[in-house]
Design a protein around this nucleic acid. Structure first.
Lengths: 358, 358
DNA sequence: ATACGAAATGCAACCGGTTGCAATTGTGTA
DNA sequence: TACACAATTGCAACCGGTTGCATTTCGTAT
């Protein structure tokens, strides 16, 4: 039984032949082989099938770099992460859920996806220069936009195909159509809906837990929060809206500070589920009970919200739809099929035990 | 103020010049420009700085495809996902945590990362043929191995650089050194540790909740489970080890079936945290209390375990270390610096409220 | 002034595919 | 048998970098 010779487990290296080698074996010219493989009917059927068969036998695969060089096209798109984004489920599952949808949709368009995180210690735009200028990819998905985002400026100046998740600044986009597609969740309406939910529960001092006013999505959510207050005739209190940071720890810390105020808030609207988790921890540590007693709500609608105790009320972003739309619109732009589409998706209020008792 | 002309927001397309164009502007030959940009001291210092300066002004970036064609190297590595893996935090945060570490480590080696999910409806190996044969990437990270995994066979036959997270079959690797690096968490020891924890709590009928015997990691964990039973003189009961599937729902369903047995288990060891979550739900639905009363433990040590109510006892895999090691070893292989390293990392038992009461 | 070696730059081929066009072969018709 | 024309296939240039080697330019020693 076990008398197989002690070969190394790797066989002699398979040749992975080039087109020239394949053609040589087939006894035809490189160009003939190329046409045969692409199914060009100018090549006689017999020759065509013979070469295709041979290619299969030899395991021929066209060299991607050579092809890309000729076509000036890579069939790869980039998914670019901002510095603060983390994939780990503990800190930022948001990206993971979005990426999942992007990967699936990209696969169905025969595109590969390159994930780019800015190199630590380099300027933010460096990776864009390299990736975009060097034609590493055909298009870019950009998220976590800020007003006047320099990445957008660069991509537009280069006329490089891209799609935004979000918008870089309200003013510009309202004045004239942005010449590239974007997908956005109506953050303002969502935040208003969430704040109204807390107002309907009878709360008047509602803290707005943000991560800092840098990002457009936060500005929009803050505006929605203010809309809701104004509609109820409640004055906006700046001390209830101190920014914290993006992590759970930040949310926990700021909530502790809020509770120590002379006139503390009676409910918390967090700008993300992750911050809400931190707020819940702070409240628990302070001996408070999260729920109808002291409501906390998040924003994003991540899967983890359903695991929490109590389960988290949140504004769900349809990240699956967002991811699919991003890729679909980017593909349309690459094919320049049509003027850029701008998609605004509605968020959804999910009421759970963290704001109302079971 | 607002009297700026109604230009389109994109400026005239920046040229993104080629090397030839750059050289022409500089009044030198293509080859001189190339050498100047790479800092070749054969080029006079004055010429060199002049060309570098010009390149900066024109925003020149070398074309990646051309460079890759010449060097037969892409500086991209592939992270290949198996069919059943999902990134969403609700279903499989495992990948997200691993990927996070891989991305960071890759960035520090100046490598880009391509994420590959097999195209739906195509043979498993198709994406490997395309990516590997077509030189899309320099190396591949492979995970979710099965005994006799065809991907491994292919990669070895092609002598294509790769690194495994896990091993494809115990027998082969024990008989002789695998010629490529791998990183593994000691699944067998981990599962034994976990099972012993449940045994120490006095349990004798411990269910092993698996996702099917396809993957090596599960076979190893099952072996560790059996080791622990054997060491305590407890007979292995096949009916307590029915496989379920990979999702929460699978874990929930199988647990419900287990509870309906004539002689049901009194504790559950799940092969993954995700399955454990499903088991906990089934128990809650059945009116049982998870904890000292009916312990449930998982495997993986994902961040979500700390959010659960009760918090989940688990065997933590050091996914950060795994990810860093995978990239580091793959890079070493690409540089063929040294014979392949094989790294075995110890898992860690994290005892929380799902097996012992607070 | 002449020669000579070093310094600086240019020429051309190459990486592996693709394609316009020319050249060859083969078929049908006058 | 000769000729027109279609069907096949080959030649060569190109995509945008890189590099071996030849060539030019310069400073310096004789």
């Amino acid at each position: 039984m076990n008398n197989t010779p002690p070969d190394p487990p790797v066989e002699a290296r398979a040749a992975r032949p080039t087109l020239a080698q394949l053609a040589h074996v087939a006894g035809v010219n490189k160009s003939t082989a190329s046409r045969a493989l692409r199914g060009d009917t100018a090549i006689a059927l017999a020759t065509r099938t013979r070469i295709q068969q041979l290619a299969r036998e030899l395991g021929y695969e066209p060299n991607a770099s050579a092809r890309r060089l000729f076509y000036a096209r890579t069939d790869v798109i980039a998914f670019t992460l901002h510095d603060f984004r983390r994939l780990e489920s503990g800190s930022d599952p948001f990206i993971a859920e979005l990426l999942e949808a992007v990967l699936n949709e990209a696969a169905s368009h025969q595109l590969d996806v390159l994930i780019c995180r800015p190199q630590p210690g380099t300027a933010e735009l460096d990776s864009y220069h390299r990736i975009v200028g060097g034609h590493h990819v055909d298009g870019v998905i950009v998220m976590d936009l800020r007003p006047g985002d320099p990445r957008i400026t660069y991509l537009c100046a280069q006329r490089f195909p891209h799609v935004l998740f979000g918008r870089s600044s309200l003013e510009v986009d309202q004045a004239r159509e942005y010449p590239y597609p974007w997908v956005e969740v109506d953050n303002r309406a969502g935040a208003r809906m969430g704040t109204e939910h807390l107002l309907a529960l009878g709360h008047r001092r509602i803290a707005f837990l943000g991560c800092g006013d840098v990002y457009t999505f936060e500005l929009d959510r803050r505006a929605g929060y203010q809309d809701a207050l104004a509609a109820s005739g409640i004055p906006y209190a700046d001390e209830l809206c101190t920014p914290s940071g993006a992590s759970q720890e930040d949310g926990c810390r700021l909530t502790t500070e809020l509770l120590a105020m002379a006139d503390p808030p009676t409910a918390i609207f967090a700008v993300s589920d992750v911050l809400a988790v931190g707020a819940m921890r702070a409240l628990r540590d302070a001996g408070r009970t999260v729920g109808a007693d002291f409501p906390v709500m998040g924003f994003d609608g991540l899967g983890l919200g359903a695991y929490l105790q109590p389960q988290l009320t949140t504004i769900r972003q349809p990240l699956g739809n967002v991811g699919r739309a991003l890729v679909r619109l980017l593909v349309a732009t690459l094919r320049s099929e049509s003027p850029p589409e701008h998609v605004m998706l509605p968020p959804e209020l999910i009421v759970r035990a963290s704001t109302v008792s079971g």
